[in-house]
C-alpha cells in the first residue's frame, strides 16, 4: 500500500524550520532600533547598490539547460528498465544501448557546439 511516511516526516521538519525562521523574524522586528532602511541595504562592501539586483540575468549556460531538459527524460525510461533488466536480459541491454547511444549523440553535438562553455 501507499507509504506516506517520508512525506509526513519531511513536512513535520519543514514546518518546524519555517516556524523557527518566522519566529526569529518576528523577534527581530519587535526590537525598537531594528530594521531601519540602511540596516536592510544588501551588502557588497559598504556602498548601497544603485539598482535592484533582480534583473534579466544573462544565464550563460542556457544551451546546457536546454540540453538537460531533453536528456533528463531518459531517466523516465531507464528506471523501469532497471527493474526488469535481470528478467529480460540481453534484449534489455541491446535496446537500452541503442536508446542511450542515440541520446549521447546529442551530448556530443552539444560539446562540439561549445554548449558547455561560456566565458
Amino acid at each position: 500500500m501507499v507509504d506516506l511516511g517520508p512525506l509526513a516526516i519531511a513536512s513535520a521538519v519543514m514546518v518546524a524550520a519555517l516556524l523557527a525562521v518566522l519566529g526569529s523574524w518576528l523577534r527581530a522586528a519587535r526590537r525598537p532600533s531594528s530594521r531601519t532602511a540602511p540596516e536592510r541595504v544588501p551588502f557588497t562592501g559598504g556602498q548601497p547598490p544603485s539598482v535592484h539586483a533582480w534583473s534579466r540575468y544573462h544565464v550563460r549556460y542556457y544551451p546546457m539547460a536546454l540540453l538537460f531538459l531533453a536528456f533528463d527524460m531518459e531517466m523516465v525510461f531507464m528506471y523501469p528498465w532497471a527493474v526488469v533488466f535481470v528478467g529480460e536480459g540481453l534484449v534489455a541491454m541491446v535496446e537500452m544501448g541503442m536508446f542511450i547511444g542515440i541520446l549521447l549523440l546529442g551530448v556530443l553535438y552539444a560539446w562540439r557546439e561549445r554548449a558547455f562553455r561560456w566565458t
Binding site: L66, L67, L69, A70, M73, V76
Partner: peptide, 13 residues
C-alpha cells in the same frame, strides 16, 4: 511527459 520535455526545450530555444 516526453512531449512536455520536448515542448519546453524547443519552446525555450
Amino acid at each position: 511527459m516526453t512531449v512536455m520535455a520536448v515542448e519546453m526545450s524547443l519552446g525555450f530555444a
